[in-house]
Design a protein around this nucleic acid. Structure first.
Lengths: 231, 231
DNA sequence: CTTTTCGTTTGCGGATGGTCAAAGAGCGCT
DNA sequence: AGCGCTCTTTGACCATCCGCAAACGAAAAG
């Protein structure tokens, strides 16, 4: 296999503070991976054989309950780590990761994670910082679900997506991957029906514009007020 | 200060696999701490100056929203780590930790965490394993809150407490620290009124017995069926 | 171009569970 | 023993939000 270009991962926060020589060694053991829209990077419950860095596309991390309901834990954007269960002493993936657009990722065998962390403390620290941020995000989500009603939760979900995957357009900020009402519902702990009603109501107020698997936030500021319960 | 007795922490999972000599060094830099019932080990937003191991008592980890609502993230039992935000690259505590009984804990300055982890890889691994378990717990909580209705959530909360802090008695399994309806509500994302109604209903069915700040689970198995939605 | 499929909208009914209010009971304190 | 505080119970009311069902529309498939 030919060496991957260093520019692929140069500048990613995950690899910040790592010596160029180390970086090349890390790249040499990587496998580049194309994941077509709709297919899984890994499945919940599967043995955690690899960890990943997403280079392009969007991945949804989703937990499925025993009775088949799905809850979206987070969306992964390029530059982020994925499947790092192993760094926390787990042997299987606690959720599934599904590409929601065509994706490109780098993959390494899980056991290499420890090697990289040993050789380059910065890499370990970066990973754990990511974990810390995600732990915080999930805890925030618990607090939201425990205290806020649906409208605010959905507003928060949209704003999170806008922050991660927002693209300026003439109308406002477009979420730049296909996103259905059902998808939003699974992030917010509600039903697609309620999401649909909310979007219609918001559209009437001029807060958003939306279509089939497409949402544009026209007035982020007002949506934020709504999310924070100050409207 | 006289050396703390090694037996204090010997056998705790957190310190599993660490050389006795290391253990003594770790103990030498520890401060023993009494935390009376009702007072805080640390407060949300405060600089994360220390991390802790709880030796005796029960601690509630609680997040407070800007508008003053409280959500209990977890209860800590003896042997568990507390305040390890720093290991994940945080500089402040993301939640408050309040003693719900008189407690005894060991404390170390946060910056020592890294030293310990460097010197004793087992210690680092143990910590991260704990983090992994907690991340998983919180994610499970999100899934529950997103998909289950209140009765099942409250049942789950009680069962978690029974597993952690249950004591066999004549009537069943008693949760061995003072626990109000409000406390249960803050774990489950509901109100004390709803919890009260549920407990009364369950008491009529013979599932639990409860009194002022006291809950005994009489039939854990049937409560589990309820929690899993198979009743 | 036609057909099918999939996402979306919308109405209606109803249950879950929150809010408000007030009374009751257990426990510590003096 | 009596007082007062806090926790708990219970009732009544009602808003939120879910479930069901049906229709609609737009994109994809043939």
């Amino acid at each position: 296999m030919s060496r991957l270009d260093r520019s692929l991962i140069h500048g990613l926060p995950v690899f910040a503070g790592i010596e160029p020589a180390e970086l090349d060694r890390i790249l040499d053991s990587a496998t580049a991976l194309r994941v077509p829209d709709g297919s899984a990077v890994f499945e919940q419950g599967e043995e955690a054989h690899s960890f990943f860095v997403l280079l392009d596309g969007r991945v949804r991390v989703v937990k499925t309950t025993p009775d088949g309901q799905q809850v979206t834990m987070r969306y992964i954007v390029p530059g982020e780590l994925l499947g790092i269960a192993q760094a926390l002493g787990r042997t299987d993936y606690p959720a599934s990761a599904v590409a929601v657009t065509d994706c490109v990722a780098l993959a390494w065998p899980s056991r290499l994670w420890r090697k990289f962390a040993d050789v380059s403390p910065a890499f370990g620290a970066n990973t754990y910082k990511t974990v810390g941020i995600r732990l915080d995000d999930v805890q925030t989500q618990v607090v939201e679900m425990a205290t806020q009603q649906v409208e605010r939760r959905v507003a928060h979900s949209l704003l999170r997506l806008v922050g991660q995957s927002g693209t300026r357009t003439g109308d406002g900020i477009l979420i730049d991957f296909p996103l259905s009402r059902q998808d939003i519902a699974e992030m917010s702990g509600t039903t697609l029906h309620t999401v649909s009603r909310l979007l219609t109501a918001w559209e009437k107020k001029g807060l958003v514009k939306s279509g089939r698997q497409k949402v544009t936030v026209v007035e982020p500021h007002r949506l934020l007020l709504l999310a924070e319960g100050r409207a």
